[in-house]
Design a protein around this nucleic acid. Structure first.
Lengths: 240, 240
DNA sequence: TCACCGTTCCGTACGTTGTATCGGTTTTCC
DNA sequence: GGAAAACCGATACAACGTACGGAACGGTGA
């Protein structure tokens, strides 16, 4: 009953062998592709299995829980954050290069914000990123703890920025509408509230709120501006 | 069959009536209590219904989707972010008061980070918060768009900081272990990697990475420090 | 060559989630 | 008093993560 006969002549069948067609790498890669294309919510065990021509439970041979898969996905893409080649000598340029890279990577993989915002990134590549951030400041004559505080502050800014940036874009899980639809639905509501007179300062800024900076270049400049502010403050504090 | 008789004598039963025992306010309040106590994952439609002595589907009379409930929860707690009374005259003090309040609120409701990080906060109280942030800068002789950029940068920093801070704490959904257990599980792994020699800069900082600043006062000071850096940079740029 | 064993894969099943549908009851309004 | 609206609930469905047990296969020692 439950037993199935192999179909077709021998030589047409797979070369026998338990040579795994499922591997951790293939699973993670597929999951990343699905997340890139359809958001993190589309990454279900069943879905990834189907994508690989396998059944759901087969994945559990290679990962222990879904959490593991998410951690592996995050660490895999964390590798893209690493700046290749030499870092600039100037510490400001160096740390800027690193956080720019962070932003670019998250723009390529918007679902990544959900992961970095919900679990510490301490996989191998996450640590390499930390190491590289510290290396960017290696020329500064200050104790490691102080360096770490500087990196944390800059990273915090970058993370916050990218989160809000991603919030405006698509490809994010948890949302039923595209940004355009959302904006269309939102605008009348915003108009009404803002014209109530309760928001004198906010009213002139409806557009900024509803849709964010118009063109990508403006968003880039906003990011650089905030980064400059933070670095200026740090530089001033260090007496540089 | 499917119909059930009310138990007990009439006068012991609820006073009949369609006076709604379920209200939007009660639902949201209960959901917030559950989230505070057990994290956002514990907030399921069935759970909140049970908590209110109702059945799951009854909630849908008052909200349309679960997303709505989450938005309502977020906006409700966004009210706590609003600074009561007059804002300080000095713009730095004023905007600092606002973001401190943000941090405090999120510390009281850690699940809130998941919501602000995943949906724009444009409910009434979210907008009031935006209005208040702008009001904090009302004394500055710069155009509204510029003010908004400043607020965005400061907010971005604060958001990033609070996210990472919350990441270390408990009461967060998505994690199976307490911070202590997690740290215990993590430390051997970190030790091994860091002692591999690949992380010369990172190695001296294992503790910072594994557990973050030791005592709460240090975390406060870290937050203030980063905030000061950002505000110094802005002030310098404005020529103040 | 053959029995054994560990690994890999899968079929089935359980509990939980959000929510569509529909049916019944109570309240309100004309 | 009758119609309409509001409210609540029972049932059901699809999708989720995953526990459990068994089948297929490759490699190994006898």
């Amino acid at each position: 009953m439950g037993t199935e006969q192999a179909q077709g002549p021998v030589w047409a069948r797979e070369t026998a062998g338990r040579r795994p067609k499922l591997t951790r790498e293939a699973i993670v890669r597929t999951a990343i592709e699905v997340a890139d294309a359809e958001g993190l919510d589309a990454v279900s065990i069943r879905r990834i299995a189907t994508e690989l021509g396998a059944r759901a439970m087969s994945l559990y041979t290679h990962i222990e829980r879904k959490e593991d898969l998410l951690d592996l996905m995050a660490d895999e893409t964390n590798a893209e954050i690493l700046v290749e080649g030499e870092l600039p000598d100037d510490w400001r340029e160096a740390i800027s290069a690193v956080v720019r890279r962070t932003r670019e990577t998250i723009r390529r993989h918007p679902w990544l914000v959900d992961l970095v915002a919900s679990r510490p990134q301490v996989g191998p590549n996450g640590l390499r990123h930390g190491e590289q951030s510290l290396a960017a400041l290696s020329g500064l004559p200050i104790p490691p703890e102080q360096k770490w505080r500087i990196i944390a502050a800059v990273d915090d800014y970058a993370l916050g920025f990218v989160i809000r940036e991603t919030l405006r874009g698509e490809g994010r899980s948890g949302y039923t509408w595209t940004p355009q639809e959302r904006e269309a639905l939102m605008r009348p509501y915003l108009r009404e509230l803002l014209e109530s007179g309760e928001f004198p300062n906010l009213a002139p800024l409806v557009n900024e709120i509803a849709s964010g900076p118009a063109d990508p270049a403006a968003a880039d400049e906003d990011f650089e501006q905030g980064l400059r502010w933070m670095l200026d403050g740090i530089a001033g504090d260090l007496g540089l």
